[in-house]
């Protein structure tokens, strides 16, 4: 293999995969909203994806809130601006840290689980069995999972915001005494609609990406059980990568629209 071929092959693979993922997304919009609807499976997936992720998201958000508050304290102390701590920490948590960290946690937990589950169904012919029984496997397996992650991730982010802010409250109280009333007043005086809305909107896209990439990698699994492992792994890596790109785009768009 020449050096040129060595470089061009991964680039070619990247563009082929990006094209296939786009087609998969188009198929989701074309088939996902047409009857018959799989409400029961949508509810089951929302429970699995949303409710069962609450402990992990809570724990991570709490630690984030606590740690960021503790680490920001010395820097603000230098300028005598400790009273600004709740406001500054809450804005960075709500705008950026909680949505992105929650999305990355969910890409690991949910993305890999979707990739592995659909992948193993693919290699054991369960998807074919579904098709011959008269069920559209794309609607039943893919559309329900993508919709569930798109709906549940913003809810998890809002829940994570609250837990992270509580972690921040405990962090503020490690080196001083601030009542919960004073803390919440300071937080909500500073937080605006323009902080919360872009964060929720980008979480919707994060959820969509995690569900879509997980389902895509699972649905296109080949090479038996080895392929299932690869699909689960690729689902996490690719969705995490796209989460960062979406975050960057969201920051730019918010800036242009003066939402920040």
């Amino acid at each position: 293999m020449t050096l040129g071929e060595g470089i061009s092959k991964p680039i070619k693979t990247f563009f082929i995969e990006a094209g296939e993922l786009s087609q998969f997304a188009i198929r989701f919009f074309r088939e996902g909203f047409r009857p018959p609807y799989e409400f029961q499976e949508l509810l089951r997936q929302s429970y699995e994806i949303g409710y069962r992720s609450i402990p992990l998201v809570s724990f991570t958000a709490f630690i984030m809130g606590l740690v960021i508050t503790i680490q920001s304290h010395p820097a603000l102390e230098v300028f005598g601006a400790e009273s600004w701590l709740p406001s500054i920490v809450s804005v960075s948590l709500v705008r950026e840290i909680t949505p992105v960290i929650t999305a990355l946690i969910c890409a690991g937990k949910i993305g890999s689980s979707i990739g592995a589950e659909i992948g193993s169904m693919k290699v054991t012919e369960q998807i074919d069995a579904m098709e011959v029984s008269g069920t559209n496997p794309f609607k039943y397996l893919v559309a329900t999972r993508v919709l569930s992650t798109t709906i549940m991730l913003p809810l998890l982010v809002i829940f994570g915001d609250m837990i992270a802010l509580y972690g921040g409250f405990l962090g503020v109280n490690i080196r001083g005494v601030t009542t919960f009333d004073l803390y919440t007043t300071q937080v909500f005086n500073k937080l605006t609609f323009g902080d919360v809305l872009p964060s929720i909107i980008k979480s919707i896209f994060f959820g969509f990406v995690i569900g879509l990439v997980g389902s895509f990698k699972g649905y296109t699994t080949s090479n038996g059980t080895e392929g299932v492992g690869r699909s689960a792994n690729a689902a996490v890596v690719i969705s995490s990568f796209i989460v960062f790109i979406v975050d960057l785009l969201a920051a730019q768009i918010s800036d242009i629209l003066h939402l920040l």
Partner: peptide, 8 residues
């Protein structure tokens, strides 16, 4: 199906 393809 060869593998029975029961839904796990």
């Amino acid at each position: 199906f060869q593998s029975s393809a029961l839904y796990d």
